[in-house]
């Protein structure tokens, strides 16, 4: 691993190629080990054969992060060394920062070297996405909502059932999002009495509840039809919650933040 002095030598030079041979070798080894570690964890052992050599890994970092030819183009180096001001061991701060930089370079490398197939499957479940969602679910055709004459009435009933089933905490989080507030805003999480990480889950569960109500209301409808109803019902649910919140004491802090941010 490079020593702090070797990192500093690289920081002062425009590239590892201009550093002393020992420094260059240490940087290349660091880059190669981190690059391989990340790539294998992201894409499996099979990726090892297409990875660059040690000098290539380091070159990718220097080439992909530079934002211009002059010195300001290498501002990322100053960012890296200023991480040491946050406390702790300077070498750990620099090394940890360099790992984070390499992580983004590896992501970019894998995206470009192992790109997605040219054809996009609309109906295949998306990898790494909860709930077996498909691209067709996420990008419904613009005319997909409200085609059936009875849809608005059904969507209203679904929204009402979901509203009745949601607790105050979930309603407040849906309200916050409806008012375009960050779910992680301290005033929002405090009003809802929850943590940052849990806030996203509760918000998500509110719409899973909506989907469950759609299944209950329309058991014979296919998945596409239920999705259309849910997309109609979602704004109606937000409207019901907004109406409720205007007379709800616990919603006052959420409205206050919205006013401050307006």
């Amino acid at each position: 691993m490079p020593s702090l002095e070797q990192w500093q030598e690289w920081g002062a030079q425009c590239a590892a190629a201009r550093c002393a041979p020992e420094t260059r070798a240490a940087l290349h080894l660091f880059g190669w080990q981190r690059f391989g570690h990340y790539a294998r964890r992201a894409r499996g052992e099979g990726v090892a054969g297409c990875l660059p050599d040690a000098a290539g890994c380091w070159h990718l970092l220097e080439a992909r992060l530079v934002t211009g030819r002059s010195r300001p183009g290498k501002a990322y180096k100053r960012w890296l060394f200023d991480r040491t001001a946050g406390g702790g061991e300077p070498l750990d701060a620099v090394q940890g920062g360099a790992s984070l930089l390499l992580r983004s370079v590896v992501r970019d490398f894998l995206r470009r070297e192992a790109p997605r197939p040219a054809t996009v499957s609309l109906d295949a479940p998306l990898e790494g996405v909860e709930g077996r969602l498909t691209l067709a679910d996420l990008l419904p055709a613009p005319d997909a909502t409200g085609a059936e004459p009875d849809a608005p009435r059904l969507a209203g009933a679904i929204a009402r059932a979901a509203f009745d089933a949601l607790d105050v905490r979930a309603r407040l989080l849906v309200l916050a999002k409806h008012l375009d507030l960050p779910l992680y805003h301290p005033a929002v999480t405090a009003a809802a009495g929850t943590s940052r990480s849990r806030a996203s889950e509760i918000w998500r569960e509110a719409f899973e509840r909506l989907a469950a109500e759609a299944r209950r209301a329309c058991p014979d409808e296919d998945a596409g039809g239920r999705l259309r109803l849910c997309l109609l019902a979602a704004p109606e649910l937000a409207r019901l919650i907004f109406q409720w919140a205007r007379a709800e004491k616990s919603a006052a802090p959420v409205f206050r933040v919205a006013e401050e941010q307006a």
Partner: peptide
């Protein structure tokens, strides 16, 4: 659709890479 698929691929990669941090 193609752009969203590409973005989701990046998002998924990022999630895996975050879980793989050796010393950050």
């Amino acid at each position: 659709a193609r752009r969203l698929a590409a973005w989701l691929d990046e998002w998924h990669l990022e999630r895996r890479l975050q879980a793989a941090d050796p010393d950050a």
